[in-house]
Computed example of a mutant assay.
Amino acid sequence: MPESPPIEFFNEDIEFEVKDEQKTKEWLQKIISNYSFELESLNYIFCSDEYLHQMNVDYLDHDTLTDVITFDNSDIEGVIEGDVFISIDRVVDNAHSFNITPERELQRVMVHGLLHLLGFDDKSPELKKLMKSKEDECLSLLSL
């Protein structure tokens, strides 16, 4: 039997579990394959606003709350090796603001982090629009 994809879920300062963990990993692997990338390792680390805010200050010099921070640890083109930190506090608050379920917002944020590792950026209005369309495209592949 083949080894499962090297996608792992961790908690930093909160208790949290991804629903349908195996299907979520398969969905993320499918996205990576669709972009013809190879998966070395992908870690999702779930944490609080406080934890992610401190990372934002320490590593990115941004004194703001955020829902996701992605670290690309790969030095090989076409290979995914990264860490995606997600604030569950932000996910829940944003889901409420957008009038969607926290699970759906979490899926959007998870794929947003992955899209950064696949080379997409969101630093301009045009790039944000493209990122949003790629998020929607990836979410449409999800069959949870």
Rank of each mutant, 00 (worst) to 15 (best):
H116Q: 08
L115K: 01
T66R: 11
T101E: 04
E21G: 06
S41R: 14
C138F: 02
S4N: 03
I80T: 05
H112C: 05
E126R: 15
D75H: 07
K129G: 02
S36P: 00
Q54S: 03
G82A: 10
L42H: 12
F85R: 11
G78A: 01
F10V: 13
G119N: 09
P102Y: 02
P5L: 04
K128C: 03
T101W: 02
K30Q: 12
F120H: 06
D49W: 12
P6S: 03
D61P: 10
E38R: 01
S41I: 15
D75K: 12
S33F: 07
K132R: 13
K132M: 03
D121C: 13
G113P: 05
L127D: 12
L118E: 00
F46C: 11
Q54I: 02
M131D: 06
L142Y: 14
L52N: 08
D58I: 13
S97R: 05
E105Y: 02
G78Y: 00
E15L: 11
K128M: 10
T64I: 12
I88F: 10
W27L: 10
E38I: 00
S33V: 10
V18I: 13
L42N: 12
S48K: 14
D122S: 13
F120L: 11
D49G: 07
I100A: 00
L142K: 13
L65D: 08
F46I: 08
E3D: 07
D122R: 14
M55Q: 14
L141D: 02
G119D: 07
N94T: 03
I80M: 12
L117P: 02
N43C: 15
I31F: 01
E137W: 11
N43P: 13
I80P: 11
I88R: 13
V91L: 01
I88M: 13
H116R: 09
E17W: 12
L42V: 13
D83S: 13
L106F: 03
Y44M: 15
L139Y: 02
K134M: 06
S48Y: 10
V84G: 05
S87R: 13
L127P: 06
D89A: 09
S143Q: 12
L130P: 07
Y51L: 14
P2Q: 05
S41G: 12
L52W: 07
I80N: 04
G119M: 07
Y51S: 14
E40V: 08
F9L: 10
M131T: 08
L114H: 01
L114A: 00
N43Q: 14
I7N: 10
E135Y: 05
K134W: 00
